[in-house]
Design a binder for these strands. Structure first.
Length: 597
RNA sequence: GGCCCCGUGGUGUAGCCUGGUUAACACACAACACUGUCAAUGUUGAGAUCGCCGGUUCAAAUCCGGUCGGGGUCGCCA
């Protein structure tokens, strides 16, 4: 028999006898009448206990407290005139209770479960199951399920095969730090957990599956962030006989249909904005721009060359640049406000931020010195300031912020400022979803510290046909066939067309500093298979946690992960990682350098 | 590895800068009252020595140092 959920009860069930199970959400005791809000995974329904209907039930109801697990029997009735609750889907009905069974009493919970109040995150993890009991969390996981289900159905419709790949695999020198798993039968040897199924899916293309996908768990032993956990879930996709445009189209189709499915009322979008890496860096200072608001970066190096402001002159003379953004309506920022921005900018290695605020009441074309608030107004002079104002289209109440230095630092700092003002000024709405496809990444970038070339994406990424030849002469100018999908400033997916010949793969690995022998040892399993007829192929991967986080309107990935880990990678609920029994270590031939229990 | 923020009854906060009362408020909790509430209401009550260790001081929640835990972020994350 199908069990009815609390929120399934509607007007149509009026006068029918029902049995419900759930948690007491709230109790309102009027001495005579007692109201219980009964909650289960479907939602809430009101139960009325009238001492005249059943004295036993009433005595039970007096004892019951929030979070007690109970079962009730009763008759569904329409609520009396004027007592309906529009807030609840079940607000027009109530259960007139004839019997209450206490299935399990509950201690007063460590934090409120029946409301969406702030709780210290430590407690949300220490008492995780109770936190998950909150309606908002249940909704997050309902959404997550819908997203994953949609993805599976989508790829199934398109004749993709979902194929599982190993969790115990081989360590790779490239990329993130691996999590290692010791082998008992091969003393001294270790498996690694996959950072992603990258090589495996390429091998599935060699195998001829042609269209593969997987909802895969990935592991990276790196420091955590709001949108990073040591283990996370990725949608992994790979296709054969495709080029960049095929995959970009597939990504657009997938995410556009997903959004249309989840938000049927939103304006449908078929194509996403596209921009090159270069464009993203120059106008937003980042390769994952948040396009929900319009604050572009402008290069003002030329306008500032030759002013009396020595700091800028020196930086420009040394090959640096100056870029600016306009913070609308912030012309009146005081010393303290500016100090905060300075601190922010210093995080990115910039010397500081140079503010030029305008504080005029009325409209004007040229600002007089009195209307300018800037520590450098004298150095720059009214002419330069007005010229800046003109170029940046700043209004008479805006604040211009300039940062000077190397291109990398200036971009990073201003991108940080841009984000800060987006947040401060509340420049976006919660419902907004701004996708952008970023393309034409460089294939390689020079790593100063290690004095060698590094893959921008990963070493299996192919180069565009037009720039491939530059590999020998100017590796930094080679453009990759890689792409990222950015949503609201978060990189949610990325991929590329892959290299599918041994010759090119060897060449790239060599450029990346792998000796031929070493490359064979580490990537030979892949390249060896390229020798047997590998199809051209490519694909992408999408961070499911991040995607759901944004769709759920959450600020951290932890709110869409059932059992997340802390910033130090600890699981507070289970107490992992933990010291293990010496016998377990001995069996694995492992000696530790920290004292054992 | 660096920088920043937080830690006060069960929960969320105030107090801390400018040391000195009975450590305040809201919610939750308990008891009693109450037959139409839905954040029920009213009355009464219990509950924290201020994360931990040390220092300064006549006196420390408050100042200083360290440490632990949580969070944000830079580096890192192909």
């Amino acid at each position: 028999m199908k069990r009815l959920g609390c929120a399934d009860i509607r007007e149509g069930d009026s006068e029918s006898e029902v049995e419900l199970f759930g948690w007491v959400n709230r109790r309102r005791d009027h001495g005579g009448l007692i109201f219980l809000d009964l909650r289960d995974s479907t939602g809430i329904v009101q139960v009325v206990i009238d001492p005249n209907v059943d004295g036993g039930a009433h005595i039970m109801a007096e004892q019951v407290r929030p979070e007690w697990v109970i079962g009730i029997k009763g008759v569904v009735r329409l609520r009396p005139e004027g007592s309906a609750n529009d807030e609840l889907p079940t607000g027009k009905v109530e259960i007139h209770c004839s019997q209450i069974e206490i299935l399990n009493p509950a201690k007063t919970p460590p934090f409120a479960i029946n409301e969406d109040s702030e709780v210290d995150e430590y407690l949300t993890m220490r008492y995780r199951p109770l936190y998950l009991r909150r309606t908002r969390m249940i909704e997050n996981f309902r959404l997550r399920h819908k997203v994953v289900k949609f993805i599976r159905d989508f790829f199934d419709r398109q004749d993709f095969l979902e194929i599982e790949t190993p969790i115990l695999i081989k360590a790779t020198p490239e990329g993130a730090r691996d999590y290692l798993v010791p082998s008992r039968v091969h003393p001294g040897s270790f498996y690694a957990l996959p950072q992603s199924p990258q090589q495996l899916k390429q091998l599935l293309m060699v195998a001829g599956f042609e269209r593969y996908f997987q909802i895969a768990r990935c592991f990276r032993d790196e420091d955590l962030r709001a949108d990073r956990q040591p283990e996370f879930t990725q949608l992994d996709v790979e296709l054969s006989f495709v080029d960049t445009e095929d995959i970009l189209n597939l990504m657009e189709q997938l995410f556009a249909e997903l959004v249309a499915y989840l938000k049927p009322d939103s304006v449908p979008v078929k194509r996403f904005r596209r921009m090159t890496y270069h464009e993203a860096m120059s106008t937003y200072g980042t390769d994952k721009p948040d396009l929900r608001y319009d604050i572009p970066l402008s290069d003002v190096t030329h306008q500032l060359a030759g002013t009396e402001f020595k700091v800028f002159n020196q930086i420009i003379a040394g090959g640096g640049i100056v870029k600016a953004i306009v913070a609308p309506g912030c012309g009146d920022y005081n010393r303290r406000n500016i100090d905060e921005l300075n601190d922010l900018v210093k995080q990115y290695g910039a010397g500081g931020v140079v503010p030029v605020g305008f504080i005029s009441d009325g409209p004007f074309n040229d600002a007089t010195i009195e209307e300018v608030r800037s520590p450098v107004s004298k150095h720059l002079g009214p002419e330069t300031i007005n010229q800046l104002k003109e170029t940046l289209q700043a209004s008479s109440t805006d604040l211009i912020l300039m940062v000077a230095g190397s291109t990398d630092i200036v971009n990073a700092a201003l991108s940080g400022l841009r984000e800060e003002f987006g947040k401060r000024l509340g420049l976006w709405s919660d419902q907004q979803l701004e996708f952008v496809l970023v393309t034409d990444f460089p294939l390689l970038q020079w790593d100063q510290d290690r004095a060698r070339w590094e893959s921008v994406n990963h070493p299996f990424t192919a180069a565009t046909d037009e720039t491939l030849a530059l590999l020998d002469t100017d590796p930094g100018a080679v453009v990759s066939k890689g792409y990222d999908l950015v949503l609201n400033g978060v990189e949610i997916a990325g991929g590329s067309i892959r290299i599918h010949t041994r010759e090119l793969q060897e060449k790239i690995l060599l450029l990346l500093g792998h000796e031929a022998e070493q490359a064979e040892e580490q990537f030979g399993h892949l390249m060896g298979m390229f020798d047997y007829g590998a199809p051209p192929h490519g694909g992408f991967a999408c961070g499911i946690d991040r995607l759901v986080m944004i769709l759920a309107g959450e600020n951290t990935i932890r709110e869409v992960i059932a059992f997340p880990k802390t910033q130090t990678g600890a699981d507070i609920f289970f107490g992992a990682p933990s010291i293990v029994d010496k016998g377990q270590l001995d069996e694995l031939n492992i000696a530790t350098r920290v004292p054992e229990v």
